[in-house]
């Protein structure tokens, strides 16, 4: 007959000490993560301080980058970063939200059953799970878009997108050149190919977060709209999208952060020219692409200047990312209690 002490007993002295030590270790490593996060920011900002003192705010407003004359300023890069990201965000949001709606609002089931109806198999029980499987397959495929390394997108953009869009760009420039957007001709790398590739890269973020937000909308809200006689799209525009709007918006902000910091695809496709232009076909430059191109060849004196540019990028992306993370977190907790 086993006594109580054999089934369960208080921890021995060694176990108690191990436990305290392990807990302290875990807490220590958590502090380490917090310290690393602070050090990353401090290291970059402190390395930039000498350049900040030397060049001041003129660094942000000038348009010259000439290492030979020791003249540095990054207004074209700031403009290029923001312009390419905003344009990519417009395309990425349109297609990303469309894909999120398609995957969250049951359109896949319609498509699947419409296809089955053609061969008259729509009532066979074997196909019952097919819509869900197709939906998962499609959303996995869209997530795969995010898994492809950005340098591969750069390669693809160089050899596929640029030759593909060039004839259209020639035509647009020749016939509609008076519109500022088409003001210059595309001579190889330029803003448009970079924006196309960038919007493909941020689309999965918007779709994944948007789909989550749409699925979190309580079913009874949709049912209420249908009950009032709304068509499916009237329900989507009047009820589902507004309810999920904050989550979708958070996803868009996070995607904006990704677009601002994206490097390789832009370094390969944007043309690396120190130009401020509204034209879609003009070469340009971005902060991240500038860092990628200039850092490997930088002399120790130039590193300070590049650190200043890195600080500017850091501040912009940090602000956007904090806003995005905050919005997504806030929305998630707000809708949690309403799930049916």
């Amino acid at each position: 007959m086993p006594t109580e002490t054999q089934i369960s007993k208080p921890p021995s002295r060694t176990q108690a000490i191990t436990d305290t030590a392990f807990r302290a270790l875990c807490q220590g490593f958590t502090w380490l993560v917090a310290v690393i996060a602070v050090i990353i920011v401090l290291k970059i900002v402190l390395a930039a301080l000498p350049a900040v003192r030397q060049y001041g705010l003129g660094f942000l407003s000038g348009q010259v980058w000439d290492p030979n004359k020791k003249l540095y300023s990054i207004l074209p890069e700031i403009w290029g970063t923001l312009y390419s990201s905003v344009l990519a965000l417009i395309f990425g949001t349109a297609f990303g939200v469309a894909a999120a709606l398609f995957l969250a609002e049951g359109f896949t089931a319609d498509a699947v059953f419409a296809l089955l109806k053609i061969v008259n198999l729509q009532f066979h029980p074997f196909w019952g799970k097919l819509p869900v499987q197709v939906e998962n397959l499609l959303s996995n495929l869209i997530e795969l878009l995010a898994a492809i390394p950005s340098v591969v997108y750069g390669l693809w953009g160089l050899f596929v997108i640029i030759p593909l869009v060039r004839p259209a760009c020639h035509w647009l420039h020749a016939d509609l050149g008076w519109i500022p957007l088409f003001g210059t001709d595309l001579s190889g790398p330029g803003m448009l190919p970079a924006v196309i590739v960038l919007s493909i890269m941020i689309l999965p973020t918007i779709t994944a977060i948007g789909r989550g937000a749409l699925l979190a909308v309580p079913t009874r809200l949709r049912m209420a709209a249908y009950g009032l006689g709304a068509t499916r799209w009237e329900a989507i525009f009047a009820v589902t999208l507004p309810t999920a709007s904050r989550g979708i918006f958070g996803g868009i902000v996070l995607a904006f952060g990704r677009a601002l910091g994206e490097t390789m695809a832009l370094a390969m496709l944007v043309g690396n020219a120190n130009v401020i232009s509204v034209s879609l076909f003009s070469p340009a430059n971005t902060l991240a692409a500038l860092l990628a191109n200039a850092f490997p060849e930088a002399s120790p004196k130039d590193v300070g200047v590049l650190m200043y540019a890195a600080t500017v990028l850091l501040v912009i992306t940090l602000l956007v990312n904090v806003a995005g993370a905050y919005i997504v977190q806030f929305t998630a907790s707000e809708l949690e209690g309403e799930k049916v």
Binding site: G257, V320, Q329
Partner: peptide
């Protein structure tokens, strides 16, 4: 929260940090 913000940390800045 820092982890969530770091998820979107530009990869080039991680390079800048490691360089420094």
């Amino acid at each position: 929260f820092a982890g969530k913000v770091l998820t979107g940390f530009p990869s080039i800045l991680a390079g800048v940090f490691a360089y420094g």
